[in-house]
Write a protein that binds this DNA or RNA. Structure first.
Lengths: 205, 205, 205, 205
DNA sequence: GATGAATGAGCCTTCATTCAT
DNA sequence: TATGAATGAAGGCTCATTCAT
């Protein structure tokens, strides 16, 4: 199962992307992909173990890359001395979010696939997996700063989950709606401030 | 195609709900629904033109009801004299949102179906359709108040779309996660404040 | 899933038999059966849950009938007072074996299918299942007569299994080789005497 | 197509045996064999024309060896002066049968393959081919001794076929059931006596 | 000797739907 | 109203085999 080199493999990739994008994972047809790539359906299986593996090949580099980026940033942020945590929570730190968006634009098609066509695959809960990471680190962060949001009941894991989920959904709208990079920068900045203000309603008594 | 009270029809409805909830629209099986309802698969077609029509029968009352409620509220809100618009934007007006949530809980199962099982149907963009309404009215509202958010570039239709989308996604998490009514009230209130604060970053210079 | 009546069903049966007979269970093709029967492949599944169920429909009446006959005969034989058990062991009692053979000829095709084409189905161990019944009852019989074959080591379950297996294989050769009923009667009688003599080498010290 | 001692060839053989033993001829996978042997599927075809040829390479030495042994023994036996044929028929001569069993144990795996995994190959009738040889020589033998079994109708080629078939099935149960050499000796001796007695019911008026 | 690639035929099964009854 | 029967299309996938390199 070669990951590259083959001309055929290179030809399959865009055909697979197209088909998954058109129909979503479940309704995408291996036969159609094969036909588009000019090979037999069986030929596909020389390059990918099965349909899911094919989808994975398309999106997992982007998924892993983004997750790694995200995790590292969270870790870095958490290591800062308390006083340097100028921004309330990580995701709303301007620097970090810019890297995040940049990564998305570097793999735009992959994220389009991931966000809009992954139902039926292990990736269907991608956003949720980001949310979980975020919530985990945010809880840590709140505790470490001694903020009373949790003890006072202003914040609960569930609310944080909802808010985080809303935020990431918001972010990935740039993908859903094919925003240009330029527009995205400006909108994301607004979104950032928006959620920052929101978080302050939670974090400040 | 009788939409009415046939005993059979009444028996089909819950079976269909169950199947769609279990498997989602596309993977739901007409045969299974029929079997559960104690009739033949063909019998289903006396009551519903096709699978999609069946799904529609389940969710469209709730969809229409909520949209109507939403639209009327927006209209009402817009008719207020400028000075009485105490809240920044409709959705974050405490009263209105309470009605909205109440309606959801009055048709909880239907919204569960709509939110989690509609991929592949015309209803898959339900949240988006709410968002569009909201954006339309919010634009009107901003213009009518003379706020400079739009002219200054702090707000654009696209940002508003993103934010609104995030908000409604947040709201419908109560359905996705089967929150109790009680929990929901508290979380929604937090969410409301959260977004209210966010909107203020847009609406105030 | 109607077991009869339908004209189509009646048309499928011989086509299925033919295909299974030609190619054996595993290589038999549902498509071919359907085509022969003049219906679509999908149509088959209206009448049989799956390929295995189809095979079962063909052979299980015969299987059950023969097993029942066999079991009842064994039970009857076992109930006889010791002194009336003139023959050494059941299978070699002339009466019983004749019924057995008669039953086979009454369902000759079914047993042909069963013996020659059942690899890959639950029926692949049909002969073995007869052997097991036989061995069980023969053990009982030997014990009940006080014969010392077992205690002396002249007979062991394993030898009995081998011998019994050889016997039934011998019997079903009439099916494998399409013997006429007439020939079979004579051959089976010889076989019977043959094994009777053999058993005597085991049962008499 | 080198039949010889290539290292690769030597590596393939046990892998092929394993796969055929596990799944039977038809369900065995060339790919799996190749993978086990550490080569590509295509590589197999340097060494064997096709799947069947591969199977043949595994079993035909044993098959030929046993057949040769068997034929020679039959010939030898037939050359004896009438009076020296102390045993009724060949197979039940203690000496010969011991050689036969010894040969089987010297190539146990090969016979396991042959007996339990040959469906779908030309070897599926291996036992039958032994039976045919046996019947041919037994007929010769009976005629040469002037025994009236044939003319009286007590023996016919078909009965002899059945009986012989039953016998060999019995013999090869030692392979099917993985009997130890020790157990086999004792069971085969019993089986021999069993069939000897049986034959006497045919050969003696 | 060996391989990666490719193939074509085939597998069983499921589906929503239609239609005569 | 309801149904049993039937359908065509499609589904993903596996297989032994071939062939250029």
């Amino acid at each position: 199962m070669p990951k590259d080199k083959t001309k055929t493999y290179q030809r399959i990739i865009p055909c697979a992307k197209k088909e998954f994008l058109d129909k979503g994972f479940e309704k995408a047809s291996m036969r159609t992909i094969a036909a588009d790539a000019g090979i037999s359906a069986a030929g596909l299986y020389r390059h990918f173990k099965d349909k899911e593996a094919m989808f994975e090949a398309l999106v997992s580099p982007a998924v892993n890359g983004l997750k790694e980026l995200f995790l590292l940033a969270q870790e870095d942020f958490n290591k800062l001395p308390k006083d340097n945590k100028q921004e309330t929570v990580f995701d709303y730190s301007s620097d970090k979010i810019k890297n995040f968006i940049a990564y998305i634009y570097d793999h735009f098609d992959d994220f389009k696939l991931l966000i809009t066509c992954a139902e039926g695959t292990v990736f269907s809960d991608f956003i949720d997996s980001l949310v979980e990471i975020e919530v985990k680190y945010t809880l840590k962060f709140i505790e470490s700063t001694g903020n009373d949001a949790l003890t006072s009941g202003r914040a609960t894991p569930e609310l944080m989950h909802i808010v985080s989920s809303a935020f990431f959904s918001g972010v990935f709208e740039i993908v859903v709606h094919d925003m240009t990079r330029e527009s995205a920068d400006s909108y994301i900045e607004r979104l950032r401030r928006f959620f920052l203000a929101g978080w302050n309603t939670i974090l400040t008594p």
